[in-house]
Design a protein around this nucleic acid. Structure first.
Lengths: 253, 253
DNA sequence: CTTGGGGTCTTCCGTTACGTGAGGGTCAAG
DNA sequence: CTTGACCCTCACGTAACGGAAGACCCCAAG
Protein backbone atom coordinates (compact mmCIF):
# COMPACT_ATOMS: atom_id res chain seq x y z
CA UNK A 1 0.00 0.00 0.00
CA UNK A 2 1.23 3.45 -0.83
CA UNK A 3 -0.18 6.95 -0.67
CA UNK A 4 -0.38 9.96 -2.95
CA UNK A 5 0.86 13.43 -2.00
CA UNK A 6 -2.66 14.60 -1.35
CA UNK A 7 -3.42 11.78 1.01
CA UNK A 8 -0.22 12.20 2.92
CA UNK A 9 -0.74 15.93 3.07
CA UNK A 10 -4.19 15.38 4.54
CA UNK A 11 -2.92 12.90 7.09
CA UNK A 12 -0.12 15.06 8.30
CA UNK A 13 -1.90 18.39 7.98
CA UNK A 14 0.71 19.86 5.72
CA UNK A 15 0.30 21.20 2.21
CA UNK A 16 1.17 19.38 -0.96
CA UNK A 17 3.61 22.16 -1.64
CA UNK A 18 5.46 21.35 1.55
CA UNK A 19 5.86 17.74 0.51
CA UNK A 20 7.11 18.88 -2.88
CA UNK A 21 9.57 21.09 -1.09
CA UNK A 22 10.81 18.27 1.10
CA UNK A 23 11.28 16.20 -1.99
CA UNK A 24 13.17 18.98 -3.73
CA UNK A 25 15.67 19.43 -0.95
CA UNK A 26 16.02 15.69 -0.49
CA UNK A 27 14.56 15.63 2.98
CA UNK A 28 11.74 13.28 2.10
CA UNK A 29 11.94 11.55 -1.24
CA UNK A 30 8.97 9.26 -1.80
CA UNK A 31 9.86 5.60 -2.06
CA UNK A 32 8.72 5.39 -5.64
CA UNK A 33 6.94 7.10 -8.48
CA UNK A 34 4.03 5.88 -10.51
CA UNK A 35 4.60 5.31 -14.20
CA UNK A 36 3.13 8.77 -14.79
CA UNK A 37 5.57 10.41 -12.39
CA UNK A 38 3.21 10.61 -9.43
CA UNK A 39 4.88 10.48 -6.03
CA UNK A 40 4.02 7.37 -4.05
CA UNK A 41 4.72 7.40 -0.34
CA UNK A 42 5.35 4.18 1.54
CA UNK A 43 4.86 3.43 5.24
CA UNK A 44 8.54 4.08 5.80
CA UNK A 45 8.11 7.51 4.23
CA UNK A 46 5.30 8.27 6.64
CA UNK A 47 7.52 7.22 9.47
CA UNK A 48 10.17 9.62 8.34
CA UNK A 49 7.66 12.38 7.84
CA UNK A 50 6.46 11.99 11.37
CA UNK A 51 10.02 12.35 12.61
CA UNK A 52 10.48 15.40 10.42
CA UNK A 53 7.39 17.08 11.76
CA UNK A 54 8.38 16.42 15.31
CA UNK A 55 11.80 17.91 14.87
CA UNK A 56 10.36 20.80 12.92
CA UNK A 57 7.89 21.52 15.68
CA UNK A 58 10.81 21.60 18.05
CA UNK A 59 12.43 24.35 16.06
CA UNK A 60 15.06 22.57 14.04
CA UNK A 61 15.85 23.77 10.53
CA UNK A 62 15.18 21.40 7.68
CA UNK A 63 18.90 21.18 7.05
CA UNK A 64 19.49 20.11 10.63
CA UNK A 65 16.68 17.61 10.40
CA UNK A 66 18.20 16.12 7.27
CA UNK A 67 21.48 15.69 9.06
CA UNK A 68 19.87 14.22 12.15
CA UNK A 69 17.72 11.72 10.34
CA UNK A 70 20.41 10.66 7.91
CA UNK A 71 22.85 9.94 10.68
CA UNK A 72 23.34 6.20 10.32
CA UNK A 73 24.50 5.89 13.91
CA UNK A 74 21.07 6.67 15.28
CA UNK A 75 18.24 4.17 15.29
CA UNK A 76 14.54 5.11 15.30
CA UNK A 77 13.98 4.38 18.94
CA UNK A 78 16.77 6.74 19.89
CA UNK A 79 15.05 9.43 17.86
CA UNK A 80 11.86 8.92 19.77
CA UNK A 81 13.67 9.02 23.04
CA UNK A 82 15.46 12.19 22.04
CA UNK A 83 12.23 13.80 20.91
CA UNK A 84 10.73 12.86 24.20
CA UNK A 85 13.46 14.73 26.02
CA UNK A 86 13.24 17.71 23.74
CA UNK A 87 9.50 17.92 24.17
CA UNK A 88 9.87 17.87 27.90
CA UNK A 89 12.38 20.67 27.60
CA UNK A 90 9.99 22.72 25.53
CA UNK A 91 7.20 22.17 27.98
CA UNK A 92 9.43 23.33 30.77
CA UNK A 93 10.30 26.41 28.84
CA UNK A 94 6.67 27.23 28.21
CA UNK A 95 5.98 26.70 31.87
CA UNK A 96 8.69 29.22 32.63
CA UNK A 97 7.07 31.63 30.23
CA UNK A 98 3.79 31.04 31.95
CA UNK A 99 5.44 31.95 35.22
CA UNK A 100 6.94 35.04 33.61
CA UNK A 101 3.52 36.15 32.43
CA UNK A 102 2.19 35.69 35.90
CA UNK A 103 5.05 37.72 37.30
CA UNK A 104 4.33 40.46 34.81
CA UNK A 105 0.69 40.43 35.80
CA UNK A 106 1.61 40.72 39.45
CA UNK A 107 4.00 43.56 38.73
CA UNK A 108 1.37 45.33 36.70
CA UNK A 109 -1.19 44.94 39.42
CA UNK A 110 1.23 46.24 42.02
CA UNK A 111 2.39 49.08 39.83
CA UNK A 112 5.96 47.82 39.99
CA UNK A 113 8.16 48.13 36.93
CA UNK A 114 10.54 45.27 36.35
CA UNK A 115 14.19 45.62 35.48
CA UNK A 116 15.08 44.64 31.94
CA UNK A 117 16.90 41.66 33.34
CA UNK A 118 13.82 40.36 35.08
CA UNK A 119 11.63 41.19 32.17
CA UNK A 120 13.48 39.09 29.66
CA UNK A 121 14.81 36.41 31.90
CA UNK A 122 12.73 33.80 30.24
CA UNK A 123 13.91 34.60 26.74
CA UNK A 124 17.43 33.60 27.56
CA UNK A 125 18.13 30.13 26.31
CA UNK A 126 15.53 27.87 24.94
CA UNK A 127 17.52 25.57 22.80
CA UNK A 128 17.75 22.08 24.10
CA UNK A 129 20.89 22.39 26.21
CA UNK A 130 22.16 22.51 29.77
CA UNK A 131 19.32 22.11 32.22
CA UNK A 132 20.49 20.65 35.50
CA UNK A 133 18.61 22.30 38.32
CA UNK A 134 14.94 22.61 37.58
CA UNK A 135 14.79 19.92 34.95
CA UNK A 136 15.86 17.19 37.32
CA UNK A 137 12.77 17.73 39.36
CA UNK A 138 10.59 17.52 36.27
CA UNK A 139 12.29 14.39 35.11
CA UNK A 140 11.74 12.91 38.45
CA UNK A 141 8.13 13.78 38.07
CA UNK A 142 7.82 12.10 34.72
CA UNK A 143 9.68 9.07 35.89
CA UNK A 144 7.24 8.98 38.75
CA UNK A 145 4.35 8.37 36.39
CA UNK A 146 6.12 5.61 34.60
CA UNK A 147 7.30 4.03 37.78
CA UNK A 148 3.86 4.29 39.19
CA UNK A 149 2.20 2.66 36.25
CA UNK A 150 4.75 -0.08 36.27
CA UNK A 151 4.31 -0.80 39.95
CA UNK A 152 0.56 -0.60 40.17
CA UNK A 153 0.19 -2.92 37.21
CA UNK A 154 1.14 -5.76 39.50
CA UNK A 155 -1.27 -4.89 42.30
CA UNK A 156 -4.19 -7.12 43.09
CA UNK A 157 -7.44 -6.05 44.66
CA UNK A 158 -6.07 -6.74 48.13
CA UNK A 159 -3.23 -4.33 47.50
CA UNK A 160 -5.57 -1.62 46.39
CA UNK A 161 -7.75 -2.01 49.42
CA UNK A 162 -4.75 -1.98 51.72
CA UNK A 163 -3.29 1.13 50.22
CA UNK A 164 -6.64 2.81 50.22
CA UNK A 165 -7.12 1.99 53.89
CA UNK A 166 -3.67 3.33 54.67
CA UNK A 167 -4.34 6.49 52.74
CA UNK A 168 -7.73 6.84 54.40
CA UNK A 169 -6.14 6.75 57.82
CA UNK A 170 -3.87 9.64 56.93
CA UNK A 171 -6.77 11.65 55.61
CA UNK A 172 -8.75 11.01 58.76
CA UNK A 173 -5.80 12.16 60.78
CA UNK A 174 -5.80 15.41 58.86
CA UNK A 175 -9.53 15.81 59.34
CA UNK A 176 -9.08 15.38 63.09
CA UNK A 177 -6.37 18.04 63.18
CA UNK A 178 -8.52 20.40 61.20
CA UNK A 179 -11.49 19.79 63.49
CA UNK A 180 -9.40 20.43 66.58
CA UNK A 181 -8.07 23.67 65.20
CA UNK A 182 -4.50 22.48 64.95
CA UNK A 183 -2.69 24.82 62.52
CA UNK A 184 -1.43 23.24 59.33
CA UNK A 185 2.10 24.23 60.25
CA UNK A 186 1.95 22.36 63.55
CA UNK A 187 4.16 19.33 64.05
CA UNK A 188 1.14 17.05 64.26
CA UNK A 189 -0.03 18.12 60.84
CA UNK A 190 3.38 18.01 59.20
CA UNK A 191 3.96 14.55 60.67
CA UNK A 192 0.82 13.42 58.86
CA UNK A 193 2.08 15.10 55.72
CA UNK A 194 5.26 13.12 56.02
CA UNK A 195 3.28 9.92 56.45
CA UNK A 196 1.29 10.87 53.39
CA UNK A 197 4.47 11.34 51.42
CA UNK A 198 5.80 7.97 52.57
CA UNK A 199 2.52 6.41 51.61
CA UNK A 200 2.85 7.67 48.06
CA UNK A 201 6.47 6.56 47.91
CA UNK A 202 5.61 3.12 49.16
CA UNK A 203 2.73 2.43 46.85
CA UNK A 204 3.24 4.57 43.79
CA UNK A 205 6.59 6.20 43.19
CA UNK A 206 9.51 7.91 44.88
CA UNK A 207 7.83 11.05 46.11
CA UNK A 208 10.28 13.81 46.93
CA UNK A 209 9.30 17.03 48.66
CA UNK A 210 8.94 19.03 45.49
CA UNK A 211 6.75 16.45 43.89
CA UNK A 212 4.74 16.26 47.06
CA UNK A 213 4.19 20.01 46.98
CA UNK A 214 2.95 19.81 43.40
CA UNK A 215 0.65 16.96 44.27
CA UNK A 216 -0.81 18.86 47.20
CA UNK A 217 -1.44 21.88 45.00
CA UNK A 218 -3.37 19.69 42.65
CA UNK A 219 -5.60 18.48 45.45
CA UNK A 220 -6.91 22.00 45.71
CA UNK A 221 -6.73 23.08 42.11
CA UNK A 222 -8.46 20.08 40.62
CA UNK A 223 -12.04 19.81 41.77
CA UNK A 224 -12.17 16.12 41.11
CA UNK A 225 -9.48 15.59 43.68
CA UNK A 226 -10.87 18.29 45.91
CA UNK A 227 -14.22 16.51 45.98
CA UNK A 228 -12.68 13.53 47.73
CA UNK A 229 -11.35 15.63 50.56
CA UNK A 230 -14.04 18.25 50.79
CA UNK A 231 -16.54 15.48 51.29
CA UNK A 232 -14.73 14.51 54.47
CA UNK A 233 -14.51 18.01 55.83
CA UNK A 234 -14.88 21.49 54.49
CA UNK A 235 -11.57 23.12 53.76
CA UNK A 236 -9.69 19.85 54.13
CA UNK A 237 -8.09 19.96 50.69
CA UNK A 238 -6.55 23.34 51.40
CA UNK A 239 -5.54 22.23 54.87
CA UNK A 240 -3.68 19.23 53.54
CA UNK A 241 -1.99 21.35 50.96
CA UNK A 242 -0.77 23.77 53.60
CA UNK A 243 0.46 21.00 55.84
CA UNK A 244 2.32 19.36 52.97
CA UNK A 245 3.95 22.66 52.08
CA UNK A 246 4.92 23.32 55.67
CA UNK A 247 6.37 19.86 55.94
CA UNK A 248 8.31 20.22 52.71
CA UNK A 249 9.64 23.60 53.79
CA UNK A 250 10.75 22.12 57.06
CA UNK A 251 12.20 18.78 56.09
CA UNK A 252 12.88 19.06 52.40
CA UNK A 253 16.18 20.79 51.63
CA UNK B 1 16.74 56.05 31.51
CA UNK B 2 16.83 54.66 28.00
CA UNK B 3 18.67 51.89 26.25
CA UNK B 4 20.58 51.42 23.01
CA UNK B 5 19.82 48.74 20.44
CA UNK B 6 22.72 46.66 21.61
CA UNK B 7 21.62 46.69 25.20
CA UNK B 8 18.06 45.83 24.35
CA UNK B 9 19.21 43.10 22.02
CA UNK B 10 21.30 41.62 24.82
CA UNK B 11 18.44 41.76 27.30
CA UNK B 12 15.96 40.13 25.05
CA UNK B 13 18.34 37.70 23.36
CA UNK B 14 17.53 38.93 19.90
CA UNK B 15 19.88 40.39 17.31
CA UNK B 16 20.28 44.08 16.57
CA UNK B 17 19.10 43.32 13.09
CA UNK B 18 15.86 42.02 14.48
CA UNK B 19 15.25 45.27 16.31
CA UNK B 20 16.06 47.19 13.15
CA UNK B 21 13.57 45.05 11.33
CA UNK B 22 10.86 45.67 13.88
CA UNK B 23 11.54 49.37 13.54
CA UNK B 24 11.36 49.18 9.74
CA UNK B 25 7.99 47.50 9.71
CA UNK B 26 6.67 49.76 12.44
CA UNK B 27 6.22 47.00 14.96
CA UNK B 28 8.53 48.52 17.54
CA UNK B 29 9.64 52.08 16.95
CA UNK B 30 11.96 53.28 19.70
CA UNK B 31 10.57 56.12 21.76
CA UNK B 32 13.21 58.54 20.58
CA UNK B 33 16.44 58.94 18.72
CA UNK B 34 19.67 60.52 19.93
CA UNK B 35 20.84 63.66 18.12
CA UNK B 36 23.12 61.44 16.06
CA UNK B 37 20.23 59.24 15.02
CA UNK B 38 20.84 56.43 17.52
CA UNK B 39 17.77 54.48 18.58
CA UNK B 40 16.85 54.97 22.22
CA UNK B 41 14.47 52.48 23.78
CA UNK B 42 12.35 53.45 26.76
CA UNK B 43 10.78 51.24 29.42
CA UNK B 44 7.53 51.31 27.50
CA UNK B 45 9.38 50.02 24.45
CA UNK B 46 10.75 47.14 26.49
CA UNK B 47 7.26 46.38 27.64
CA UNK B 48 6.06 46.22 24.11
CA UNK B 49 9.03 44.12 23.06
CA UNK B 50 8.21 41.60 25.72
CA UNK B 51 4.68 41.34 24.40
CA UNK B 52 6.01 40.95 20.89
CA UNK B 53 8.34 38.15 21.86
CA UNK B 54 5.60 36.32 23.68
CA UNK B 55 3.26 36.42 20.77
CA UNK B 56 6.07 35.54 18.41
CA UNK B 57 6.93 32.52 20.50
CA UNK B 58 3.32 31.50 20.27
CA UNK B 59 3.53 31.46 16.51
CA UNK B 60 1.90 34.69 15.45
CA UNK B 61 3.22 36.52 12.42
CA UNK B 62 4.66 39.97 12.95
CA UNK B 63 1.76 41.44 11.04
CA UNK B 64 -0.70 39.76 13.35
CA UNK B 65 1.24 40.94 16.36
CA UNK B 66 1.16 44.48 15.10
CA UNK B 67 -2.58 44.29 14.73
CA UNK B 68 -3.04 42.70 18.14
CA UNK B 69 -0.88 45.15 20.02
CA UNK B 70 -2.19 48.21 18.25
CA UNK B 71 -5.77 47.31 18.99
CA UNK B 72 -6.82 50.17 21.24
CA UNK B 73 -9.63 48.12 22.70
CA UNK B 74 -7.23 45.81 24.50
CA UNK B 75 -5.37 46.86 27.63
CA UNK B 76 -2.04 45.37 28.72
CA UNK B 77 -3.52 43.16 31.39
CA UNK B 78 -5.83 41.57 28.87
CA UNK B 79 -2.81 40.78 26.74
CA UNK B 80 -1.15 39.04 29.62
CA UNK B 81 -4.26 37.06 30.35
CA UNK B 82 -4.61 36.09 26.74
CA UNK B 83 -0.99 35.03 26.58
CA UNK B 84 -1.51 33.01 29.68
CA UNK B 85 -4.29 31.09 28.05
CA UNK B 86 -2.43 30.66 24.82
CA UNK B 87 0.58 29.32 26.64
CA UNK B 88 -1.56 26.82 28.44
CA UNK B 89 -2.90 25.71 25.09
CA UNK B 90 0.58 25.25 23.73
CA UNK B 91 1.60 23.25 26.75
CA UNK B 92 -1.39 20.99 26.26
CA UNK B 93 -0.47 20.50 22.67
CA UNK B 94 3.09 19.58 23.52
CA UNK B 95 1.79 17.17 26.08
CA UNK B 96 -0.28 15.53 23.38
CA UNK B 97 2.81 15.25 21.27
CA UNK B 98 4.62 13.72 24.19
CA UNK B 99 1.88 11.14 24.42
CA UNK B 100 2.14 10.55 20.69
CA UNK B 101 5.85 9.89 20.99
CA UNK B 102 5.18 7.44 23.76
CA UNK B 103 2.58 5.73 21.63
CA UNK B 104 5.06 5.51 18.79
CA UNK B 105 7.64 4.01 21.12
CA UNK B 106 5.17 1.45 22.34
CA UNK B 107 4.19 0.57 18.82
CA UNK B 108 7.80 0.21 17.82
CA UNK B 109 8.51 -2.00 20.76
CA UNK B 110 5.53 -4.19 20.00
CA UNK B 111 6.33 -4.25 16.34
CA UNK B 112 2.97 -2.78 15.51
CA UNK B 113 2.66 -0.34 12.63
CA UNK B 114 0.23 2.48 13.17
CA UNK B 115 -2.32 3.65 10.67
CA UNK B 116 -1.58 7.02 9.08
CA UNK B 117 -4.47 8.44 11.03
CA UNK B 118 -3.04 7.40 14.36
CA UNK B 119 0.42 8.42 13.34
CA UNK B 120 -0.43 12.03 12.62
CA UNK B 121 -3.29 12.53 14.98
CA UNK B 122 -1.34 15.02 16.98
CA UNK B 123 -0.42 17.23 14.06
CA UNK B 124 -3.94 18.36 13.53
CA UNK B 125 -4.28 21.99 14.48
CA UNK B 126 -1.79 24.05 16.37
CA UNK B 127 -2.07 27.50 14.97
CA UNK B 128 -4.05 29.87 17.11
CA UNK B 129 -6.67 30.32 14.44
CA UNK B 130 -9.83 28.71 13.20
CA UNK B 131 -10.25 26.05 15.76
CA UNK B 132 -13.83 25.06 16.02
CA UNK B 133 -13.69 21.35 16.44
CA UNK B 134 -10.75 20.25 18.51
CA UNK B 135 -9.79 23.54 20.05
CA UNK B 136 -13.21 24.12 21.46
CA UNK B 137 -12.63 21.12 23.59
CA UNK B 138 -9.40 22.58 24.91
CA UNK B 139 -10.89 25.96 25.54
CA UNK B 140 -13.88 24.34 27.01
CA UNK B 141 -11.64 22.31 29.17
CA UNK B 142 -9.85 25.35 30.46
CA UNK B 143 -13.12 27.09 31.10
CA UNK B 144 -14.30 23.96 32.77
CA UNK B 145 -11.71 24.27 35.46
CA UNK B 146 -12.58 27.85 36.18
CA UNK B 147 -16.28 27.14 36.15
CA UNK B 148 -15.76 24.19 38.37
CA UNK B 149 -13.76 26.07 40.95
CA UNK B 150 -16.28 28.87 40.95
CA UNK B 151 -19.20 26.54 41.48
CA UNK B 152 -17.67 24.24 44.04
CA UNK B 153 -16.57 27.19 46.13
CA UNK B 154 -20.17 27.55 47.22
CA UNK B 155 -20.72 23.93 48.15
CA UNK B 156 -21.22 22.94 51.74
CA UNK B 157 -20.40 19.59 53.26
CA UNK B 158 -23.88 18.29 52.51
CA UNK B 159 -23.36 19.06 48.86
CA UNK B 160 -20.09 17.20 48.77
CA UNK B 161 -21.59 14.16 50.41
CA UNK B 162 -24.53 14.17 48.08
CA UNK B 163 -22.41 14.46 44.99
CA UNK B 164 -20.07 11.81 46.26
CA UNK B 165 -22.95 9.45 46.91
CA UNK B 166 -24.32 10.09 43.45
CA UNK B 167 -20.94 9.48 41.90
CA UNK B 168 -20.45 6.38 43.99
CA UNK B 169 -23.70 4.91 42.71
CA UNK B 170 -22.54 5.29 39.13
CA UNK B 171 -19.23 3.66 39.90
CA UNK B 172 -20.97 0.75 41.59
CA UNK B 173 -23.17 0.37 38.57
CA UNK B 174 -20.08 0.08 36.43
CA UNK B 175 -18.57 -2.43 38.81
CA UNK B 176 -21.71 -4.55 38.59
CA UNK B 177 -21.63 -4.49 34.80
CA UNK B 178 -17.99 -5.46 34.83
CA UNK B 179 -18.66 -8.29 37.25
CA UNK B 180 -21.52 -9.61 35.13
CA UNK B 181 -19.40 -9.56 32.02
CA UNK B 182 -21.43 -6.90 30.26
CA UNK B 183 -19.25 -5.47 27.46
CA UNK B 184 -18.30 -1.82 27.84
CA UNK B 185 -20.01 -1.05 24.57
CA UNK B 186 -23.32 -2.47 25.78
CA UNK B 187 -26.25 -0.12 26.24
CA UNK B 188 -26.25 -0.70 29.98
CA UNK B 189 -22.67 0.45 30.31
CA UNK B 190 -23.06 3.43 28.00
CA UNK B 191 -26.17 4.48 29.89
CA UNK B 192 -24.05 4.60 33.03
CA UNK B 193 -21.42 6.57 31.15
CA UNK B 194 -24.09 9.05 30.19
CA UNK B 195 -25.20 9.30 33.82
CA UNK B 196 -21.61 9.87 34.78
CA UNK B 197 -21.31 12.68 32.28
CA UNK B 198 -24.47 14.29 33.56
CA UNK B 199 -23.16 13.99 37.05
CA UNK B 200 -20.05 15.94 36.16
CA UNK B 201 -22.11 18.52 34.30
CA UNK B 202 -24.46 18.92 37.22
CA UNK B 203 -21.87 19.35 39.90
CA UNK B 204 -18.74 20.65 38.26
CA UNK B 205 -18.91 22.02 34.76
CA UNK B 206 -20.51 21.54 31.39
CA UNK B 207 -19.02 18.25 30.35
CA UNK B 208 -19.30 17.60 26.62
CA UNK B 209 -18.49 14.28 25.03
CA UNK B 210 -14.97 15.24 24.08
CA UNK B 211 -14.15 16.45 27.52
CA UNK B 212 -15.66 13.30 28.91
CA UNK B 213 -13.43 11.20 26.73
CA UNK B 214 -10.36 13.06 27.97
CA UNK B 215 -11.46 12.66 31.54
CA UNK B 216 -11.96 8.94 31.12
CA UNK B 217 -8.53 8.58 29.59
CA UNK B 218 -7.11 10.23 32.64
CA UNK B 219 -8.78 7.74 34.91
CA UNK B 220 -6.57 5.11 33.41
CA UNK B 221 -3.44 7.12 32.75
CA UNK B 222 -3.13 8.73 36.15
CA UNK B 223 -2.52 6.17 38.84
CA UNK B 224 -3.91 8.42 41.54
CA UNK B 225 -7.25 8.34 39.80
CA UNK B 226 -6.86 4.75 38.82
CA UNK B 227 -6.35 3.81 42.45
CA UNK B 228 -9.84 4.95 43.32
CA UNK B 229 -11.42 2.66 40.78
CA UNK B 230 -9.05 -0.25 40.91
CA UNK B 231 -9.76 -0.53 44.61
CA UNK B 232 -13.37 -1.26 43.77
CA UNK B 233 -12.64 -3.80 41.11
CA UNK B 234 -9.68 -4.84 39.04
CA UNK B 235 -9.80 -3.37 35.56
CA UNK B 236 -12.61 -1.00 36.45
CA UNK B 237 -10.76 2.15 35.39
CA UNK B 238 -10.19 0.79 31.91
CA UNK B 239 -13.75 -0.48 31.76
CA UNK B 240 -15.16 2.92 32.58
CA UNK B 241 -12.91 4.52 30.03
CA UNK B 242 -14.11 2.14 27.34
CA UNK B 243 -17.75 2.69 28.25
CA UNK B 244 -17.29 6.45 28.18
CA UNK B 245 -15.67 6.27 24.78
CA UNK B 246 -18.38 4.02 23.44
CA UNK B 247 -21.01 6.36 24.78
CA UNK B 248 -19.30 9.40 23.31
CA UNK B 249 -18.92 7.70 19.95
CA UNK B 250 -22.58 6.78 19.98
CA UNK B 251 -24.23 9.90 21.31
CA UNK B 252 -21.69 12.63 20.78
CA UNK B 253 -21.83 14.14 17.32
C1' DC C 1 -15.38 6.79 -25.96
C1' DT C 2 -15.06 11.30 -24.78
C1' DT C 3 -15.84 14.71 -21.59
C1' DG C 4 -15.54 16.99 -17.22
C1' DG C 5 -13.87 17.59 -12.60
C1' DG C 6 -10.41 16.79 -9.62
C1' DG C 7 -5.65 15.44 -8.55
C1' DT C 8 -0.76 15.80 -9.91
C1' DC C 9 3.30 17.38 -12.43
C1' DT C 10 7.11 21.05 -12.98
C1' DT C 11 8.34 25.88 -13.14
C1' DC C 12 8.75 30.22 -11.33
C1' DC C 13 8.03 34.25 -8.92
C1' DG C 14 6.43 36.18 -4.16
C1' DT C 15 6.74 36.47 0.90
C1' DT C 16 8.19 36.53 5.77
C1' DA C 17 11.64 37.31 9.03
C1' DC C 18 15.31 38.05 9.34
C1' DG C 19 21.23 37.12 8.19
C1' DT C 20 25.12 39.18 6.44
C1' DG C 21 28.06 42.23 4.90
C1' DA C 22 29.45 47.13 2.79
C1' DG C 23 30.49 51.66 3.55
C1' DG C 24 30.46 55.17 6.72
C1' DG C 25 29.43 58.13 11.08
C1' DT C 26 29.77 58.19 16.68
C1' DC C 27 31.67 57.98 21.18
C1' DA C 28 34.35 57.11 25.34
C1' DA C 29 38.94 55.78 26.64
C1' DG C 30 43.75 56.17 26.38
C1' DC D 1 43.54 62.51 18.37
C1' DT D 2 43.40 57.97 17.30
C1' DT D 3 41.43 53.53 18.14
C1' DG D 4 38.13 50.07 18.92
C1' DA D 5 33.48 49.19 19.95
C1' DC D 6 29.16 50.58 18.78
C1' DC D 7 25.76 52.73 15.74
C1' DC D 8 23.65 54.16 11.18
C1' DT D 9 21.52 53.05 6.43
C1' DC D 10 21.28 50.60 2.25
C1' DA D 11 21.11 46.37 -0.11
C1' DC D 12 21.36 41.76 -1.39
C1' DG D 13 20.92 36.71 0.40
C1' DT D 14 18.37 32.88 2.61
C1' DA D 15 14.93 29.44 4.49
C1' DA D 16 10.68 27.50 4.05
C1' DC D 17 7.38 27.53 2.01
C1' DG D 18 2.67 30.05 -0.68
C1' DG D 19 0.35 30.56 -4.84
C1' DA D 20 -0.59 30.50 -9.56
C1' DA D 21 0.28 29.01 -14.36
C1' DG D 22 0.19 25.63 -17.91
C1' DA D 23 0.13 20.85 -18.89
C1' DC D 24 -0.59 16.06 -17.94
C1' DC D 25 -3.28 12.12 -15.69
C1' DC D 26 -7.25 9.52 -13.91
C1' DC D 27 -11.73 7.87 -13.66
C1' DA D 28 -16.55 7.93 -13.43
C1' DA D 29 -20.61 9.42 -15.82
C1' DG D 30 -23.02 10.34 -19.95
Amino acid sequence: MSYTVGQVAAFASVTVRTLHHYDEIGLLTPGERSHAGYRRYTEADLDRLQQILFYRELGFSLEEITAILDDPAVDPVTHLRRQHELLRGRIDRLRDMLAAVETAMEAKKMGISLTPGERFEVFGDFRPEEHEPEAERRWGDSDAYRESRRRTAAYGKADWLELKREGGAVVEGFAACLAEGVPATDARATALAERHREHISRWFYACGYDIHRGLADMYVADPRFAATYEAVAEGLAAYIRDAVHANADERGA
